[in-house]
Amino acid sequence: MPHANQRVAYGQALIDAGRVNDKIVVLDADLGGSTMGKMFETEFPGRHLEVGIAEANMTSMAAGLALVGKIPFTNSFAVFSTGRSYDQIRQSVAIGNVNVKICGSSAGLSDFGDGATHQSVEDIATMRALPNITVICPADPNEAYRATLAAVEHVGPVYLRISRADYESVTPEDKPFVIGEPVVMKDGTDVAVLATGYMVGPALKAAAALEGRVSVKVVNIHTIKPLDAEKVLAAVGSCKAVVTAEEHSIVGGLGSAVAEAMRGNPKPTEFIGVRDEFGRSAHNFNELMEHYELTPKAIEEAVLKMNK
């Protein structure tokens, strides 16, 4: 059964991992119904901790749990689990390389109705700036499931970016998830589109639309940190230009990470992302994607521009 959406896939992965690993502890700050921490709570009430609307305490508590051998997952909307807890992540978790998993749920623009206060366009940038943290942004529901299992196995802090948008998977259900490995989704020789998260799907659509005109390579960068320069260069291969695509600000996100990785061997690069502004309310997710030009069409145009 394909997973319905990322957050349910995440909740299911926690349950499946929790069945075989009793060290997993799930913390929620009164958003378990959205983060899907409630799925774990139903299954393992003794290992789910409702800590109240207090994200800073949740994060440092998770550090304490990890320091006595637990594998804690903190859950809130990405803006809160990273923003309200930034210093706790930095001081209690990252400096000590403590084995805490931070779930940024309702990430990006996926909490479409709530507007700028609840939409995270800078969480990848802030988390990626912290040494020791692995930053994972799964492409789709299937990958969210597999990435969650990989986060359990990884020893060290992980930031896991989970969308609440409903969309179909473009990655398989059963392929192993290897942290740090770019995944070539479609081969091509002219322009490489490096996409992360939700934008992998639109990138594939753009490549299909350009079939016969431009040979587009599509690479899923599910791990934004660590991002190995050699692997990025190998993923770009002989393509003459690069387009990055992310549901995140162009400041400090995937585009920046790719540009940093390619700084010794640069190629012309264009960024598709939110252009240094906050989110806004809309009646549905697709309206926001259109507004911020995070669409197959926008990727197509960028590819055509870079293919000149």
């Binding site: 901790l49 440092s60 508590m61 304490g64 006595v68």
Partner: peptide, 27 residues
């Protein structure tokens, strides 16, 4: 040294997590 501290106000939260985790293990 059992925990990294320095940014004030975080130690008690870390202590809560430790105490909870230890209790879960009947430690």
């Amino acid at each position: 040294i059992e925990a990294g501290t320095g940014s004030l106000g975080q130690g008690l939260s870390i202590g809560c997590g430790m105490a909870l985790g230890l209790r879960m293990d009947n430690n």
